[in-house]
Nucleic acid binder design. Structure first.
Length: 776
DNA sequence: AACCAGTCACTTTTT
DNA sequence: GTGACTGGTT
């Protein structure tokens, strides 16, 4: 068998076409489970084996590090370590950082620029708004931050924003944008959106740089193309150099191949434009489109359900997933009385499935719309002792203690990083309060120097307490001492030095707060992360051959010195790699049940899937009910959820669900009605509870479609009456179970009760009006 | 400067 | 229920 035949073996017709297509831009419309990663990797192999393409000429872009790692792994299996390491297989952001580190000096940034994540940039925007004396009620910094991000995604700079500004809001926004950008630049920092936008600007401002990368990358591939925003689209376009663009110069356009599925676009709320995939043929007139519709993942029943749901979206190009795997079992439906009942059903069912050996825990996933819904499941999983893992939620690098230490590291790597510097100024507490900070800030503004420089001259700052001056000087001395050790130390050693010399660790160790114990553990884990990083980094360097293009004398500039991993390397890794994914391997024997939001589920597959919280107001979410575009995105989310299941699919809802203290009665999700009835076997079709005590429940869809909690009238008075409690009464609490009233105080809505739940839980205080308590 | 109690707001979130 | 933020108190 020839190598070509080997590469194409086991691929269906359209897949083969996609692998062997050459020349014109190619759009692969890959339905869920249609083997797109396989096609992509085989296409790369084909390029190299049959068309003489060198690995260094290929750029494969993904959205997540996980997807990049997976692709790299599969390329390695197919083509070997060398090819896998020479190719650029990485996320948009990583690719841009790699380019920017080399070229940043042209734009007045240090090559070791800091990367601000969304929390940092929100903080900076807050500082900017304060500096502008904006009323946070009328001009919320959060909203400004969000809007600036949107503008950057659209490649709108602050000058343009200012020109287009009509209202006072828009004018202030443009002004804040400009100041924000100046502060970023002064801090030697870029936010996530800058990474893309600035790279595009760089290509446009320096044709020689653009040409250098165009020469280098002759093949550009983009995965999850439906999730690209305008800036990312422009980046791809700049890189490829479309044939009809006049400024392409002597380099012919690179071959472009994008893969995506408009039906799985669930990130429009973050700026992704489905337009990019829908209009691919208009953007690249000679383009060819190949449709992958055969699904290798799910049974036909599951696909028919998914197809029927997604078909309700308007203006959608026809696509119909089909499977050769047969109908499979029916979808199981369940209507629970409340969310606890729903969780109990799910756990009971998983218990049954694992007991009879149908699946192992790791083959099961539970999906929900919002993170908050995970609590109830967690409770029940713990109680039944079923092993589980929650993906997402508060991420490791977002924990306070980790961010604090990170801020120290960032300041050491880049002393001008104001946001980080101000974060650690008084952490751990060292007597530098708001007053002192303000004095330094004013002094900096007056002298037109950076905050960091002002800090060094704190003794000159007017109106600052002598005690504070001392405290600041101790602090800068501490920073100097730490900084001195950086050049000769590995990242892990720096982390350890920060932990001990700042007194951060000892403060936590002395604390009696239970939470602080887990903080210490997290910090220990962080040191491990640093050590781990040093090892993998060293391993990578040994394997990676020198950059092939470096010797051809093109435009190499900037300073990159391979060798020991530096602090900057480590920080970059952390900014760009969210959580080295906690999603357990599917082939884990036994293992644990995975719980996650529908968004987190994208790209995964499980033999058994539970889609929970299928209620109008939960999923689709209340906030989307009034907006057709948003509702369609929710529907795509439903489509993504349904198509994760390989064989067993459960859909469930709760008749009553308490949200923020008050119960709400939600009608079943419209997406449930959109699944053909013949495909669902309702284990329990309605709640055993009486209809709720207000109007418009159950049927009322279309007339605004809100859940009853928001049906109109004041919030107070909806739901249940507060029980009248007396000392000694026996009560039942939704999460804590049975307890006895110890004390009652206050009156009316403010009546409080102290309830003793026994040795395990102890006494707790509740607002009787809102607590989920019933008198027994 | 540090602490506490009251107030508000609350989807999703690859980087 | 909870976490983040604020304004007043100690």
């Amino acid at each position: 068998m020839s190598s070509q035949e080997q590469l194409l073996e086991g691929l269906n017709g359209p897949q083969r076409d996609a692998v062997t297509h050459s020349g014109a831009p190619l759009l692969i419309v890959a339905g869920a489970g249609s083997g797109k990663t396989r096609v992509l990797t085989h296409r790369i192999a084909h390029l190299m084996a049959e068309r003489g393409v060198r690995p260094g000429e290929i750029l494969a872009i993904t959205f997540t590090n996980k997807a990049a790692a997976e692709m790299k792994e599969r390329i390695q299996a197919l083509l070997g370590v060398r090819a896998a390491n020479t190719m650029w297989t990485m996320t948009f952001h990583s690719a841009c950082v790699r380019i920017l580190r080399r070229e940043a000096h042209r734009l007045g940034y240090p090559s070791s620029f800091t990367i601000y994540d969304s929390a940092d940039s929100a903080r900076l925007m807050q500082l900017v708004c304060k500096e502008m004396d904006l009323d946070p009620k009328r001009f919320p910094p959060k909203s400004f931050s969000f809007q600036v991000s949107n503008l950057k995604n659209e490649l709108v700079d602050y000058d343009t924003a200012a020109e287009q500004a009509q209202t006072e809001q828009e004018k202030k926004l443009a002004e804040a944008y400009q100041l924000y950008q100046r502060r970023l630049h002064e801090a030697g920092a870029m936010d996530f959106d800058d990474l893309i936008m600035v790279t595009v600007n760089l290509f446009q401002m320096f044709p020689d740089v653009a040409e250098y990368y165009r020469r280098r990358f002759r093949h550009v591939m983009v995965d999850e193309y439906q999730d690209t925003n305008h800036a990312q689209y422009a980046f791809v376009r700049e890189l490829v150099g479309a044939a009809e663009d006049s400024d392409t110069g002597v380099v012919p356009p690179a071959e472009l191949c994008v893969v995506g599925d408009a039906d799985q676009s669930i990130y429009a709320f973050r700026g992704a434009t489905i337009r990019n995939i829908l209009e691919f043929e208009r953007d690249f007139p000679s383009a060819r489109t190949i449709l992958l519709e055969q699904n290798y993942r799910s049974t036909q029943n599951i696909l028919s359900a998914a197809n029927a749901v997604i078909d309700r979206n308007e203006g959608r190009p026809a696509k119909n997933l089909w499977s050769e795997q047969g109908d499979g079992p029916a979808i199981t439906g369940y209507v629970a009385d409340n969310e606890h009942d729903e969780a109990a059903f799910v756990v009971g069912e998983i218990d049954k499935l694992t007991d009879e050996g149908t699946v192992t825990p790791s083959q099961v996933a539970v999906f929900y719309r919002t993170n908050a819904q995970s609590r109830v499941f967690e409770d029940v999983f713990i109680r039944t002792g079923l092993p589980y893992k929650i993906v997402g939620g508060v991420r490791f690098y977002e924990r306070k203690e980790i961010r604090d230490i990170l801020a120290y590291l960032r300041v050491l790597a880049n002393p001008e990083d104001t946001v980080s510097l101000r974060r650690i100024l008084n952490v751990p507490k060292r007597g530098i309060g708001a007053r002192a900070e303000e004095a330094v800030e004013l002094f900096a503004a007056r002298e037109r120097i950076s905050f960091s420089r002002a800090l060094r001259r704190v003794d000159e700052a007017p109106g600052i307490a002598t005690r504070s001056v001392k405290a600041v000087q101790n602090f800068t001395a501490l920073l100097d001492e730490l900084a001195e050790a950086v050049p000769g130390s590995t990242p892990a050693e720096v982390v350890e030095a920060v932990l001990s010399k700042t007194g951060y660790l000892s403060e936590l160790a002395e604390s009696k707060d239970l939470q602080d114990e887990s903080r210490v553990e997290n910090l220990e884990e962080f040191v491990d992360v640093a050590r781990e990083f040093e090892h993998t980094f060293a391993a990578l360097l040994e394997e990676e051959p020198p950059d092939e293009d470096e010797e051809d004398g093109a435009v190499p500039s900037g300073t990159l010195d391979p060798g020991e991993p530096t602090l900057v390397d480590f920080l970059e890794r952390i900014s760009l790699v969210a959580d080295t994914d906690q999603i357990p391997d599917a082939d884990d024997t036994g293992g644990v049940v995975t719980l996650m939001t529908l968004h987190a589920a994208k790209g995964l597959e499980f033999p058994a899937v539970f889609l929970t919280g299928m209620e109008d107001g939960v999923f689709p979410h209340t906030r989307t009910l009034g907006d057709k575009t948003q509702l369609e995105e929710e529907r795509r989310l439903a489509y993504v959820g349904l198509t994760r299941a390989q064989r067993l699919l459960y859909v469930s809802r709760a008749a009553v669900r308490s949200a923020w203290g008050t119960p709400s009665y939600n009608p079943g999700s419209r997406f449930l009605d959109e699944i053909p009835a013949s495909l669902v076997d309702w284990r329990r079709a309605e709640s055993s509870l009486a209809a709720p005590p207000s109007r418009g429940i159950g049927g009322g869809r279309g007339s605004g479609g809100f859940g009853s909690t928001f049906g109109g009238g004041p919030r107070r008075g909806t739901g249940k009456e507060a029980p009248t409690l007396g000392v000694g009464d026996l009560v039942n609490h939704d999460s804590f179970g049975m307890g006895r009233v110890q004390l009652v105080e206050g009156a009316g809505d403010k009546t409080k009760a102290r309830i003793d739940f026994g040795a395990d839980i102890g006494e707790k205080d509740f607002l009787v009006k809102y607590a989920p308590i019933e008198k027994l």
